[in-house]
Design a protein around this nucleic acid. Structure first.
Lengths: 107, 107
DNA sequence: AAATATACCTCATCTGTCAAGGTATATATT
DNA sequence: AATATATACCTTGACAGATGAGGTATATTT
């Protein structure tokens, strides 16, 4: 991983929500998707991922249910809620604004 | 201010170095410049600013000297060092990469 | 005399990240 | 049969940057 945690900080929840917009998924898979999308340039640390899940659930942005796997490890699935979709739109807007601001400041 | 601290987090040092690339300056002025450049969309909190100065000096990225004001409040000036210029290039590169990665992830 | 602007600073607290540890199942290798 | 690897979940404590709240001092405006 090349990108530092302080730069990505604050985007974790948006990244997770973005992934859940595509389809319900579970922690391990979400992280694999992130790696694939970024050509292995970025991955979430597990502890970061799970603490973000807790915050998102607490905030009502996601809901969770256990998968019905009969073989292999159990999977806890996450689904984005309506509040989560709204929150995502806010995060996206913030990102667009932040990009502009930082671009102006780093000349 | 609209941008949240967690999104700007990690950019503080780069923003200060960028300002010092233009000319030597002091805390109060640097913050005023940031506000002006961003049309008041962003300003550093004083405590954030000064803790960043400490880190930058510790890391050898800036050096400091007192202004010779005969009237008004004293000013502590900061100048970017050669190491600071190098660090800035690194920060800028990181920002370009981070932008790409986050843009890929927030669809 | 009081308020505002300039200009510096410290300290305690908060929050997201993450290293390090753990549990359990299934498959591939030795 | 034992070991390693991959999948899949989780918790805890520590760290570091950001910040609210407080402080000091000078000069100007009301």
């Amino acid at each position: 991983m090349s990108i530092t945690s302080d730069i990505i900080r604050g985007h974790t929840e948006a990244i997770i929500l973005s992934s859940l917009l595509e389809q319900d998924s579970y922690g391990y898979q979400i992280n694999k998707d992130i790696m694939k999308k970024t050509n292995n340039a970025y991955e979430l640390k597990e502890a970061t991922l799970y603490s973000a899940f807790r915050r998102l659930e607490q905030a009502g942005c996601i809901r969770t249910y256990w998968g019905d796997e009969t073989v292999g490890a159990r999977r806890r699935y996450y689904a984005i809620t309506e509040d989560g979709r709204k929150a995502y739109q806010g995060y996206k807007q913030e990102w667009q604004e932040a990009k502009e601001i930082i671009d102006k400041l780093l000349k």
